[in-house]
Amino acid sequence: MAELHYELVTPSRLARSGDAFMVVVPGTEGDLGVMAGHMPTMTAIRDGEVAIYSSEHQIETKFHISGGFAEINEKGLIILAEEAKEEN
């Protein structure tokens, strides 16, 4: 299956970009697991964790974000956040 291209952008830098199996986004209406070929969506994000999955069961990394907004279009997923901090 095709990989999902994602970008995590903050005002001060491009925090992370790449391809992943799935990215879980904490939308205001509930968590969204975004995979390649997701329908175009725009959603506000509540403060919480973005998890990037490299495969079905493996989480590559997690980010704590606040003040966010996500756009999913045919090119991939773009998360605009005011702050993004990688969790170890």
Partner: peptide
């Protein structure tokens, strides 16, 4: 065919100040 969550206006009103 873009889906908006919650809805366009809410998103717009949070995004505008930003």
């Amino acid at each position: 065919a873009i889906e908006f969550e919650p809805d366009e206006e809410t998103i717009l009103s949070t995004l505008l100040p930003r």
